[in-house]
Nucleic acid binder design. Structure first.
Length: 469
RNA sequence: GGCGGCGUGGCCGAGUGGUUUAGGCAGGGGCCUGCAAAGCCCCGUACGGCGGUUCGAUUCCGCCCGCCGCCUCCA
């Protein structure tokens, strides 16, 4: 059984299901006012891996991740560009999904948009006002954190210590500096929606509260996001839910930072910050492997060097797929638990011990680095057995490696050698002839020519093989 | 000020109270190869510092040093 770290308790605990066999995840998605950066990529990959692993474990998974399409920054950015908010968000939502597809992140089962849920948010705020836990000011409606049981749970600090650390000016009409806005009263030029207490727009990520509870129901299993969302973003979501008498998420998961030079990545740093840049400059699978190589709660360094290391690891996996002519495990979507005991190719079944080791690592709060080590051990075993002529063992290890790596969402680029054009094909023919005639100088020259054209050249019993590099 | 995280061999990065050990990348030696490439085999004996607990600590405890993060809208 999967055990996960819970940000609310700081402890690793078994995933508690509402209903046997089913699990629901809500992951805070992007605010679409700009292109995604590496941090967005990381959380998407982390929770995609979780989702795939839950499916691999045999659970029926419902995965919801929102698009926040109304927010201060959206309004500002749209105004700067002289376009409407919806024009702006349409553009960046498109960029978002392109990046997700490139990373092989599965589309969520539902992707609710904040603007489609404003009515429900109005109901929630109305309910909170009725219950007397929220109050109106000239600016809007605020939640009174003193009325919320356990406020500070995710910050893991008491209300008192939070209050003492508050660096904001004790604002306007707020009763407590920690009270936060649920509804912002209308300002000229801003999008507004009607509400009984006055037109305006939603405040503190009320959409996540409404959408998660609407789509997944009370007490859904996992709520996740980046570490920076823990407080105050998620704290405030929880506060709204709890204050309205609802049971919110059972587990809170937060992934660590992407760092650059040891510091939290920020938009002003480095040129590797854009997710699209990374995808363009490197094998998109490299980022997944990079994310997988470290624990999801640890910071990761994304540098040209670490990306290159990941690509080198990928090359090793691809080489395995090529050697054993393995199918891409992702071709049929997420890898299902049946993959480990089926015998689809009519070849040896998978390595049970290795699979068990893999599962043990993953069940331990997603020790993907350990799980990956199991996979690489299998790669070596497969090659080693094949070198020794033990094809049955080799095939079993290779198949197991493919299934397990597929369970993590890593695609194998086995047989895709790139299109071999006529010029290259001709060079290959001439090289084979030269080699047959033992004209080594000529063969070497032809190899150099192929390499200069971007081909990776390998000799084999069947003759010269080339593929794109 | 409050709260939290981290410091592992050239690099990245797991893990553990003690028998052999992560794993990847890079590097050295070897096998294979016409030469390569790929693959395989062998090699580095690492855990910030100082104490403590212990038969024994990188792993537990304390202190120190260094780095990083959160404390109102940042994944």
């Amino acid at each position: 059984m999967l055990r996960l770290h819970d940000s609310a308790t700081g402890e690793v605990a078994p995933l508690a299901l509402r209903e046997p066999g089913k699990v629901s995840l809500y992951v805070c998605g992007p605010t679409v006012y700009d292109a995604p950066h590496l941090g967005h990529g990381r959380f998407s990959l982390v929770f995609d891996v979780l989702r795939r692993y839950l499916i691999f474990s045999g659970l029926e998974v419902t995965y919801v991740s929102n698009i926040t399409d109304i927010e201060d920054k959206i309004i500002e950015r749209a105004a700067e560009r002289g376009i409407t908010e919806s024009e702006l968000t349409a553009v960046y939502e498109g960029v978002w999904w392109d990046a997700m597809d490139a990373l092989d992140v599965l589309r969520p089962d539902e992707t609710p948009h904040a603007t489609a849920y404003v009515e429900r948010m109005v109901e929630l705020v109305g309910d909170l006002l009725e219950r007397g836990v929220a109050y109106e000011t000239d600016d809007g409606v605020y939640l009174s954190v003193n009325e919320v049981p356990g406020y500070g749970l995710l910050a893991r600090q008491s209300l008192e210590s939070l209050r003492s650390g508050a660096r904001i000016e004790a604002a306007e009409d707020k009763r407590s500096p920690l009270d936060f806005v649920l509804w912002k009263n209308a300002k000229p030029g801003e999008p507004t929606w009607d509400a009984p207490w006055g037109a305006g727009r939603p405040g503190w990520h009320t959409e996540c509260v409404v959408m998660s509870l609407d789509l997944l129901g009370d007490g859904f299993e996992v709520h996740g996001g980046g570490l920076d969302l823990m407080f105050p973003h998620h704290e405030n979501e929880r506060a709204q839910a709890v204050a309205s008498g609802r049971e919110f998420a059972r587990h809170w998961m937060h992934n660590g930072w992407v760092t650059v030079g040891g510091e939290k990545m920020s938009k002003s740093l480095g040129n590797f910050t854009s997710l699209s840049d990374l995808i363009d400059r490197s094998d998109p699978r490299a980022y997944r492997l990079l994310v997988l190589r470290s624990h999801y709660r640890s910071p990761i360094e994304v540098t040209p060097e670490t990306v290159a290391q990941a690509e080198a690891g990928l090359a090793r996996l691809d080489e395995l797929a090529r050697r054993f002519d393995l199918e891409d495990p992702l071709d049929q979507g997420p890898v299902l638990p049946g993959a480990v005991d089926s015998d689809a190719a009519g070849s040896a079944a998978v390595d049970g011990l290795a699979t068990e080791a893999f599962v043990n690592h993953m069940d331990d709060d997603l020790d993907t680095a350990g799980a990956l080590a199991v996979v690489f051990d299998l790669v070596r075993q497969a090659n080693s057995a094949a070198d020794a002529g033990d094809d049955a063992v080799a095939m079993q290890s290779a198949r197991t490696a493919a299934v397990l790596v597929g369970a993590l969402g890593v695609r194998l680029a086995g047989s895709d050698n790139g299109e071999i054009d006529d010029t290259a094909a001709d060079l290959v023919r001439r090289r084979d002839a030269a080699r047959a005639a033992k004209e080594w100088a000529e063969a070497d020259a032809l190899r150099a020519e192929l390499e200069a054209a971007g081909w990776l050249v390998e000799d084999s019993a069947e003759g010269t093989r080339i593929r794109r590099r």
